[in-house]
Design a protein around this nucleic acid. Structure first.
Length: 468
RNA sequence: GGCGCGAUAGCAAAGCGGUUAUGCACUGGAUUGCAAAUCCAUGUAGGGCGGUUCGACUCCGCCUCGUGCCUCCA
């Protein structure tokens, strides 16, 4: 079974064939660090994390590069508003982003290049573009890319260059030769942070940093380039124009774009102001629940965010962890058997189909049913089934906690929540009531705990509890 | 206006030209002092109109509705 990837460039699923056998060179557009990451960023972070995990599980040696945009207009404006240096601002939000991704179990990329640390490569590419006749320096010190010179402009976003000309905003101040042209280098206003260049003091345009950094990290041509739903145009279109005009070679083989997160049927975005930051959401829900929510829909689909969707994610995750509760997987992790191999094969088949995580989760729930049956009939397969479930979960970045820990903390985000000590005490009180067959008192305690979000489970060995 | 994407049961979300998706919720049974969890059983589908086909939720066309990009945004 071969891996198929939906390529934005062709709008089709294609069999994935890497440039170098068993190696994947992958670049994802990361954050512009002037604010906290929101759920839309989390979608990209988690989606590509799953993709990398799966590629590695298939034996690929993946070089995953995800950049950080640490210089641009919004960063300078925000730093100015805050009365702080732009580096103080960006360092703060880079740290915040790293905290957020860690909490969401997103593994760090192999490298995380920053625009400000790659000025030499950026300047070299701009000079190459001028030398190749694709860019020009304007009188004011700006350098622009000549969109008209790049014959296949619009190939990724399926836009007609002529129509872009008609629809382009006319900027009276601009020194562009053509309204479609975009800045490779912006001359510095007085007092602004800047870098020296052959065209005077200035800073790079938004698009050039990704062309320069991806090329320097991964080579002229690489396998996968990913990003969010709003990046195909103009960002990625411009990257193609820059890189292919500079190197004369194909830039990227497979373009991948995540779908939008929506709130009330509207895209979550900074400009609309309807965004929830990752840390906002993590105030109310365990990180793994947020991650499950993101993984439970396909990475390309639009998904609506709501309280209800997280509650449902929590319930579903509880079913998975409940199956793992009290199962010893000692010595079972490395066993293979026809039983577990069948589930793994189905899981892989789903993931081979453009990383179909909802389908993969369905396989995990089938496995859960098998595991639950095994737990009750004592057929001896319990350990290996649980181990298989966990190892599949690992590929999605879920189910790595101790089941007991998850189940006892899942709903525990209320500061007024009842403590474990109180719970244990009440359970002990209830036990003595039950021993005396005082069912009314026993049920009173059960109901009281239920009102506090604690659900009891009476077993032969004793009473266990969870929050839910 | 241009270029795309989508419409699945109460909700969420997949595959598939003919046979149970899956999860949450719901119903009946087993189980339990009562529960919870679990298992078993069952119900609830595929926007509208045409076409292709022995047969379409699944392919094709049209329509309606929703939504994304076209401007900084993941």
């Amino acid at each position: 079974m071969s891996l198929q990837i939906f390529n934005t460039l062709t709008r089709k699923k294609e069999v994935f064939v890497p440039i170098e056998e068993n190696k994947v060179k992958m670049y994802v557009c990361g954050m512009t660090v002037y604010d906290y990451c929101h759920l839309g960023h989390a979608r990209v972070l988690v989606s590509f994390d799953v993709i990398v995990r799966y590629l590695r599980s298939k034996g690929y040696d993946v070089n995953y590069v995800r950049n950080i945009t640490d210089i641009d207009d919004k960063i300078l404006n925000r730093a100015d508003e805050n009365g702080e240096s732009f580096t103080t601002l960006t360092e703060r939000f880079i740290n915040a982003m790293h905290e957020d991704e860690k909490r969401l179990s997103v593994k760090s990329p192999d490298s995380e290049p920053k625009a400000t640390a790659h000025m030499a490569e950026i300047l070299a590419m701009i000079q190459q573009l001028i030398a190749n006749g694709y860019a020009y320096a304007a009188d004011n010190g700006d350098v622009y890319y000549s969109v008209d010179k790049f014959a296949t402009y619009g190939q990724l976003s399926k836009k007609n260059p002529e129509e872009l000309l008609v629809g382009a905003r006319v900027d009276v101040e601009s020194s562009k030769k053509d309204p479609r042209d975009f800045a490779l280098w912006k001359s510095a206003k007085s007092g602004e942070v800047s870098w020296g260049s052959p065209w005077g003091e200035g800073r790079p345009g938004w698009h050039i940093e990704c062309s320069a950094m991806s090329t320097c990290c991964l080579g002229n041509t690489f396998d996968i380039h990913g990003g969010g739903p709003d990046l195909p145009f103009p960002h990625h279109e411009n990257e193609i124009a820059q890189s292919e005009a500079a190197t004369g070679q194909k830039y990227v083989n497979y373009w991948m774009h995540a779908g939008a997160i929506r709130v009330n049927k509207e895209k979550m975005s900074k400009s609309l102001g309807n965004f929830f930051t990752i840390r906002d959401v993590l105030e109310s829900y365990p990180a793994e629940v947020v991650r499950y929510f993101l993984v439970s829909s396909h990475y390309r689909s639009q998904v609506d965010y709501s309280e209800g969707s997280l509650k449902e994610a929590q319930s579903a995750l509880s079913r998975l962890y409940t199956a793992l509760r009290d199962v010893s997987v000692d010595g079972a992790g490395t066993e293979t058997s026809d039983l577990t191999d069948a589930y793994k094969a189905k899981f892989n088949k789903a993931m081979d189909d453009d990383f179909n995580t909802p389908e993969a989760l369905a396989v995990m729930f089938d496995l859960v049913k098998e595991l639950n049956k095994s737990k009750s009939n004592g057929d001896g397969n319990t350990g290996q089934l649980a181990a298989a479930l966990r190892s599949l979960g690992e590929l999605l970045g879920i189910l790595q906690l101790d089941a007991e820990t998850f189940l006892k903390s899942a709903g525990g985000f209320d500061n007024n929540a009842i403590s474990e000590e109180e719970i244990e005490q009440l359970i002990a009180d209830r036990l003595s009531a039950r021993n005396n067959k005082e069912w009314a008192e026993s049920d009173r305690i059960r109901d009281h705990l239920k009102d506090s979000g604690v659900i009891l489970d009476d077993r032969k060995e004793g009473t266990v509890w969870r929050r839910g």
